[in-house]
């Protein structure tokens, strides 16, 4: 028993030294959008690991051993918050044995803490489906809100790593410049689809709709988080046959059956969008791709 403890201590010391030797800040990002943003704002000062890919539904991730190992070593945790990761993040935090990323610490960055959320439910009742009491968490689809998050994230990076302050500030300035130019470009691009009706799978596009002016007329899920039911789909079908929509949108990680069925029946084009940036993709590249995909579907 005692021998085992000795071993443990030696082990711990060794890794403590190893940690010190590693100067870069370790970042654990819950979703690819935050790792892409962190990469633009922190660049070579950060070692980033992303907990999910854009093929995975961030509501339903398991607290896998590998994620606990990553949380254990992270200096900074960047997540969406607003209960999006409630099924797995609390467990990672509790099991990590890492004080730096616990709620209230500088290393605990929840993007939704820094913007206003839409769709804050007035009635909290689970018969309404899997609703988020704080509001709709999918803020990364609004370029304006991204800019707000970027500003605060940059502040957090500076707080955690003051020695590179000027570099972080410079990176934020150049990101802001590029992003703002892009926003006006995207704004022009989406002019043609403003006010057009769309159908979505899950209620995860509100911020995008708000920003782009697209008009969501129906969701395939009757209640958030509950798979589409046949009765609801046939109701939708008859509605859409009378007043057709521009397109049906779903995130690539969602079950595509309902969307394609409805598209076949109504002739309304369907598009599977990547809900988050792909591997090594920047925010700009991803959003460019997203908008182009939508515009291509309409032509």
């Amino acid at each position: 028993m005692l021998h085992q403890w000795n071993k443990l201590v030696v082990f711990a010391l060794f890794f403590a030294w190893f940690n010190l030797a590693h100067a870069e800040m370790r970042v654990l990002a819950c979703e690819p959008e935050w790792s892409a943003l962190a990469k633009s704002l922190g660049g070579e000062h950060l070692t980033i690991y992303t907990a999910t890919t854009n093929q995975q539904d961030p509501h339903h991730i398991q607290a896998r051993p590998s994620l606990i190992a990553k949380a254990r070593r992270a200096d900074l945790l960047i997540c969406t918050g607003a209960e999006l990761e409630i099924g797995w993040l609390p467990l990672l935090l509790r099991k990590s044995g890492n004080g730096n990323i616990q709620p209230g610490q500088s290393g605990h960055f929840m993007a939704t803490d820094y913007v206003t959320l839409l769709e804050k439910p007035t009635v909290l009742d689970r018969s309404e489906g899997d609703i988020h009491s704080a509001g709709n968490p999918h803020i990364h689809l609004d370029p304006d809100r991204i800019l707000q998050v970027a500003t605060h994230l940059s502040r957090t990076l500076i707080k955690l790593d003051p020695s590179n302050q000027s570099d972080y500030q410079q990176k934020l300035t150049s990101f802001t410049q590029v992003w703002q130019n892009k926003i006006s470009e995207w704004n022009k691009q989406v002019q043609s689809i403003k006010g057009k009706p769309i159908v979505v799978h899950h209620n995860s596009w509100v911020y995008f709709q708000r920003w782009s002016g697209l008009n969501q007329v129906a969701t395939l899920e009757l209640k958030p988080g509950i798979p589409p039911t046949t009765s609801h789909l046939s109701q939708l079908l008859s509605n859409l046959q009378q007043t057709p929509a521009l397109m049906i949108i779903y995130a690539r990680y969602q079950d595509s059956k309902a969307a394609h069925w409805l598209s076949q029946k109504t002739g309304i084009p369907v598009v599977a969008l990547d809900f988050s940036p792909g591997l090594d993709e920047t925010m700009v590249q991803w959003f460019d791709r997203l908008i182009n995909q939508i515009l291509e579907t309409t032509t």
Binding site: L8, A12, F15, N19, A69, K70, R72, R73, G97
Partner: peptide, 13 residues
Amino acid sequence: ISYIAPTDTFLQL
């Protein structure tokens, strides 16, 4: 008491 090693592979003792 539980200890998680700072390794990429999850190791808990």
